[in-house]
């Protein structure tokens, strides 16, 4: 049996946790449960009231909705291309920042700047840069391309904006990983006659796998939920070519007041993101168990 003093301290600790618990309850738990319940009802208004029970009807509707599949395709493309691009570029930037450079603090500060920009500002910035009439990109290239004028090109330009912003955070994660690799290991590889590429591929990358896995999990999940940059840069156009699942969910819930359907779409995102996270984490655990 625990002494009275320890139990008293335990109660005090729980009391100190109370404000955080209330916040978590209010802004996470309650909306999560309420959205789940709403997804089983045919809620077609923001106003409270009694709505018909739909069971899994809203979930089935998503798979019967012809607009949902292109939206899913855009989201998958955005997620894969932006995550891969951010990983490759982030690795390059991390290697540069890890090299013995002068004014290292300055380069690190500069690299983190895009990530420090709010996504809304980043979206507005790139909307201007990509403007076909007076955008700086056409000025620089001496072209007259409507960068946001056709669906596929516009989707790729949104990816460029996302990559520009998020490569920094990927680079910093990988840089942290790189700094845990002892210089002696790389020096030994060089002494054994390994080329720079071979050293990178056979020594650095395997040791960086945990950092890469964490970055992949975070960026994939973030990319799958992309909304704000699309909202600002293209509004989902042209010809719905940049609509993602999160954007489509927002349209259904708030513009069309189909809150039941919107909630089901939101939970489909949760399920997809959860599955991706589980897959990556399992992969990470397998690697760790294999001692890689």
């Amino acid at each position: 049996m625990r002494p009275e003093r320890v139990r008293g301290e335990g109660r005090f600790a729980l009391f100190l946790l109370l404000p955080a618990a209330i916040v978590v309850f209010g802004v996470v738990l309650y909306p999560v449960v309420r959205t789940l319940l709403m997804s089983f009802y045919d809620v077609d208004s923001a106003m409270p009231g009694s709505y018909p029970f739909a069971g899994l009807g809203n979930y089935a509707k998503a798979f019967q909705d012809p607009s949902f599949y292109p939206v899913l395709g855009h989201t998958a493309y955005f997620t894969i291309v932006s995550t891969v691009a951010e990983l490759v570029l982030g690795m390059g930037v991390a290697l540069l920042l890890n090299a013995p450079l002068r004014f290292k603090w300055l380069w690190r500060s500069l690299v983190v700047l895009p990530w420090a920009l709010p996504t809304i500002v980043n979206g507005a910035l790139w909307r201007w840069i990509d403007n076909g009439q007076y955008g700086v990109l056409n000025q620089l290239l001496g072209t007259e391309i409507q960068w946001l004028g056709s669906p596929f090109l516009a989707l790729n330009m949104v990816i460029v904006a996302d990559v520009w912003k998020n490569t920094s955070i990927v680079a910093f994660f990988l840089l942290a990983g790189l700094q845990t690799i002892p210089a002696e290991i790389r020096e030994a590889a060089v002494m054994d006659g390994a080329s720079t590429w071979r050293t990178f591929w056979s020594v650095v990358v395997p040791l960086l796998k945990p950092s890469i896995a964490v970055v992949l999990v975070l960026r994939t999940i973030e990319a799958f939920k992309v909304f704000d940059i699309v909202y600002v840069m293209t509004g989902g156009g042209p010809a719905s070519g940049t609509q993602t699942v999160a954007f489509y969910t927002y349209l259904q819930a708030f513009s069309n007041q189909l809150f039941g359907y919107g909630s089901a779409l939101a939970y489909l995102i949760v399920i997809a993101v959860g599955a991706l996270a589980m897959f990556y984490l399992r992969l990470l655990r397998q690697n760790q168990m294999a001692g890689v």
């Binding site: 309850f25 738990l29 309650y30 319940l37």
Partner: peptide
Amino acid sequence: GLAALLAA
């Protein structure tokens, strides 16, 4: 969790 369910 139960409180959230009841509240929702």
